[in-house]
């Protein structure tokens, strides 16, 4: 086979593989939009479910998912970012930090349904939060800690070492150096972690299955100790537990879930792009 032929075949394979990645994505979006879009209406988005969830809207589930995402981020971003700073900027290579790194690797490898079980044991029963936003958000935040920590550590390590040296050489303390010379330049990378977390927290079903999600709960939560409906679990319920439901309800719910995650991501991506433009090194 001539070199030219080999090249043609290689390029064809590369293009084909790339196409195979694009096709399912396009197909899924098309499928969701075609089946789900007709179901979207003000009543669907802002109304309560009716008639055994065969009619009405999904507003309680949207609010529930929103609460869970915000709650999970509120807990995991500060803890994750501070842990990453400790690991990347302060700690030397000790037995303790090796243990922490091992723990993070393990957390990242645990299946999400195990998080659900763990969250139920710890938050729902042992700490007595019951099935609640609190229990669900905490479970999701633990699941997402490895994501935030890893993204933040990579972001911190991509800040040039000279920034730290310059700051220290000017007599700044190590904390001032982190706070003023390093962290501001790591924010785009940290946002990447947050984007990933939003998608996961909004989309995962297993961790909220045992800790928060209600099958049917019209009305909105009054406190963080109330259970809520959530979009992924709602989708699962109406697809498996409710007979004779229209496809529009199911695809409408799926489209809403994807749309919400996507719009949060788009905001974060624009914010990140804006911050990156200021980066010059």
């Amino acid at each position: 086979m001539s070199a030219r032929h080999a090249q043609t075949i290689a390029f064809a394979l590369l293009a084909l593989s790339t196409l195979l990645v694009v096709l399912p994505a396009l197909f899924m979006v098309f499928f969701l939009v075609r089946n789900g879009l007709p179901a979207l209406s003000a009543e669907f988005l802002l109304g309560e479910p009716k008639d055994g969830m065969r009619a009405g809207g999904i507003f309680p589930a949207i609010v529930g998912s929103f609460c869970l995402v915000v709650g999970a981020i509120t807990v995991s971003v500060p803890i994750g970012v501070l842990t990453a700073i400790y690991l990347s900027e302060y700690s030397s290579d000790s037995a303790f930090t090796r243990l922490v790194r091992l723990a993070i690797l393990n957390l990242a490898g645990v299946p999400s349904v195990v998080y659900g079980l763990f969250g139920m044991g710890l938050f729902v029963y042992f700490l007595g939060f019951g099935q609640s936003i609190m229990a669900g958000a905490l479970t999701l935040s633990i699941m997402n800690l490895p994501v935030i920590i890893t993204a933040t550590r990579e972001a911190l390590q991509s800040v040039p070492p000279s920034f730290r040296e310059v700051s220290l050489a000017l007599g700044a303390t190590r904390w001032q150096t982190v706070r003023y010379a390093v962290l501001p330049n790591a924010i785009p990378g940290i946002l990447t972690g947050v984007i990933l977390e939003v998608s996961r927290a909004a989309g995962e079903t297993a961790p909220i299955l045992f800790t928060v999600a209600a099958f049917y709960l019209p009305g909105l939560p009054q406190s963080v100790f109330d259970p809520v409906m959530a979009l992924p679990y709602h989708l699962y319920s109406i697809s498996t537990q409710v007979p004779n439901i229209s496809a529009g309800m199911r695809y409408g719910t799926a489209l809403t879930l994807v749309g919400l995650v996507l719009s949060v991501n788009v905001v974060a991506i624009f914010l990140r792009a804006h911050l990156r433009r200021k980066r010059r090194w």
Binding site: P160, S162, F163, L170, G171, A172, Q176, Y180, A181
Partner: peptide, 23 residues
């Protein structure tokens, strides 16, 4: 100390000079 390669911080000219005094 002045380092080998010019190492401005990712800040304006003014804030680069003001970095030390601010700290």
């Amino acid at each position: 100390m002045v380092l080998a390669l010019p190492a401005p911080l990712n800040l304006s000219v003014f804030e680069n000079v003001a970095y030390g005094p601010r700290r």
